[in-house]
Design a protein around this nucleic acid. Structure first.
Lengths: 150, 150
DNA sequence: CCTAATTAAATGTATATACATTAAATACTT
DNA sequence: AAGTATTTAATGTATATACATTTAATTAGG
């Protein structure tokens, strides 16, 4: 659906203005889909993001700072996200003995199992996108978005 | 900067997977820029969005529902956003006499003046984008994002 | 009409976000 | 080595979000 219809705006000041609104709108749209898809598993998109990052490091652990560096939203409070995940036993956290300011964070077996479960059962958004876009189109947008943030 | 570097991830499962992350990441990036740019004027990006919508209708008023229909984030609580704007005297709200369930919301002169002020002083993000992208590139992404949400 | 269903907006509430501050550990600097 | 600066994470707090519930007004159906 065209952005014009999604937000009932007939025209935009410029193609750049539309791009700006389109990226924000589409980001919100994807976020809403994720919230709904993840809800049955009791995790938010941000918590999911942290779990995926930790899975990428498994079986090693990483520090909180490194989690933030890898997150999609740099403003999120990784400390508190990890809190939530520790409570649910999806990750473990312990003081790093080499530098006691740092925390070593790692995904647990339960966390890995949850991700596996989600992987199997969620109609993932990237599959959804694959239905409407060609690989070439996806590539094009990726190149341009990367360029846009310069 | 390439998404790979922004989130320190060497590779993605697919071009679609990268697209998904790229749109969310870039949306967050734009949102952060907006928060910072709008902060000196005492409005959040969502409040700004409402003001722009009301300016588009000026001098007419519209109901809360219609504001939501036009917003970039459909999950936002327009009722409470309008509350905030009323307190700051940027919009006025009164019961619609034709249907007393509805509220007529309109932008005030102070609201118009604020938008005007912001317009003049903010290095707008769309100008920023214009520096790195051609109009053709912006168009391409717009077409593809519109298609993606089908 | 009178009740039930629907619609519009407001409210409640639990959680999340933005961002500043604090606390603790380590690294510098002279 | 002592004091200062820096780094890491946690915490405080005001505001925002997601979403269910409530309240009030209107419409529909018997």
């Amino acid at each position: 659906m065209k952005l014009e219809d999604e937000i009932k705006q007939k025209k935009f000041k410029s193609e750049y203005q539309k791009l700006l609104l389109n990226v924000i709108f589409t980001g919100n749209w994807l976020n809403s889909l994720s919230i709904k898809a993840f809800k049955p598993y009791g995790v938010s998109p941000q918590q999911y993001n942290v779990l995926r990052i930790l899975k990428g490091q498994h079986p090693n652990s990483i520090m909180v700072n490194q989690i933030v560096e890898r997150m999609l939203d740099k403003n999120s409070n990784a400390s508190r996200l990890v809190d939530k995940l520790v409570i649910k036993n999806l990750v473990k956290r312990e003081t790093c003995e080499k530098d006691r300011r740092q925390m070593d964070v790692a995904i647990t077996d339960k966390g890995l199992k949850l991700l596996d479960d989600m992987e199997k059962n969620i109609e993932h958004v990237d599959q959804l996108i694959a239905k409407t876009l060609s690989k070439k189109e996806a590539e094009e947008v990726n190149v341009i978005l990367d360029k846009m943030r310069e």
